[in-house]
Amino acid sequence: MLELRLVQGSLLKKVLEAIKELVTDANFDCSATGFSLQAMDSSHVALVALLLRSEGFEHYRCDRNLSMGMNLNNVSKMLKCAGNDDIITLKADDGSDTITFMFESPNQDKIADFEMKLMDIDSEHLGIPEAEYHAIVKMPSTEFARICKDLSSIGDTVVISVTKEGVKFSTRGDIGTANIVCRQNTTVDKPEEATIIEMQEPVSLTFALRYMNSFTKATPLSSTVTISLSSELPVVVEYKIADMGYIRYYLAPKIEDDEDMKPE
């Protein structure tokens, strides 16, 4: 028996929006600790990991571990039927092949039930080792989204290089090149507007902007984004979900060759 009650229903809607562009089908794993998802995109270049801890739910009951395969587009369709202020409750019976979404309006005068069929999805769970990252950049998520969007209009890949000066996003395309440098900036009124760079050693990696732009679909979930870089490791783009958990994207870097653009 599974029963999760989330007061802030819009959060689930945002989560789905943040994932469904990258992944079409995925298993949602429920355990006593929380509600999680891990999935790779179809080309096995990016991986998304979602965690919503049980403490974040108003009511969380999960009798035994459960993996529910869902088509994310269908989930999104269901959730679109929920109002932004609605309370969302997920219910599933043991051994059932359906999941029920219940939407309650804030003043309880409207209650809607949506039952969705589950699907069997073969998925490989990847072990993600804990790693020390050479550089960790924390910046406003909207800023990051803007950079990715702007750069993708010029080139296909972005070189993210972190030096003690700051973090530089650069691209090159048919029409020209672009470089965007963000310096460390902690002197801001609101902490979420700060750009904080923690660097052990300089790092420079190349990524496909297409994926980065998919990641920025999570921008509504958090006002800040954390980008962790290490040479020889996938970048981690993390959006914290307040009081509940996170959504993390892992993206394998592009292997640079000589002629590839490297920051000078």
Binding site: M40, S43, H44, V45, A46, L47, E124, H125, L126, G127, I128, P129, T206, A208, L233, P234, Y250, L251, A252, P253, K254, I255, E256, D257, D260
Partner: peptide
């Protein structure tokens, strides 16, 4: 070709 694969970084459990 130049794009790395996530599977080369993370092992299946």
């Amino acid at each position: 070709n130049k794009q790395g694969n996530i599977l080369s970084f993370f092992k299946k459990v």
